[in-house]
Amino acid sequence: MNAPRTSRTFKSGNSVALRLPKSLGIEAGVEMTVREERGRFIVEPVKAERKIDISGFAGKIPWLKLLTPEDREFEERELDWDCKKLNRDG
């Protein structure tokens, strides 16, 4: 664990601010959460949740149809995975 560092609060607009030392390795612009637990303040980076909203995709490609269970069936066949043949043919 790293040694404790001391910093002093200061006024910034209508808020009280605290500078975090550069030696902590926190980049500028990182979104942080601050919470109070039993008289202590916990400061943590916000976990980035990468979510993709796909609700707007419906209807964008009307010609695309879902496969039916019958369309997903295929004939079983033995595959020839001989790499020497693949190199000669390709």
Rank of each mutant, 00 (worst) to 15 (best):
V30G: 10
I26R: 05
K51Q: 09
L79M: 14
L67D: 13
A28Q: 10
N14D: 12
E37I: 13
T33Y: 14
S23F: 00
L24Q: 00
P62H: 03
I42Y: 04
I52L: 12
K84H: 04
D71H: 09
A48H: 08
L79Y: 12
A17S: 15
P69V: 09
F10R: 08
E73S: 04
E27T: 00
D71G: 08
N87F: 12
G90V: 02
R38T: 02
F41G: 06
K60E: 08
G59M: 04
N87K: 14
L24M: 08
E44S: 12
A17Q: 03
K84Q: 08
D71R: 12
K51N: 06
P45E: 12
R8I: 13
P45S: 09
N14K: 10
S23Q: 03
E31V: 14
M32T: 06
F74K: 08
A17T: 05
R19Q: 08
E49I: 09
A28W: 00
K60S: 06
E78T: 12
P45V: 06
V30T: 15
E76Y: 03
L24A: 00
T33S: 15
P62D: 12
M1K: 00
S12H: 08
F10M: 11
R8S: 12
G59K: 01
R77G: 01
P69L: 10
K84A: 10
L79E: 15
R19A: 15
R77V: 03
P62I: 02
K51F: 12
K47R: 11
G29K: 07
N14G: 11
L67Q: 11
L24S: 00
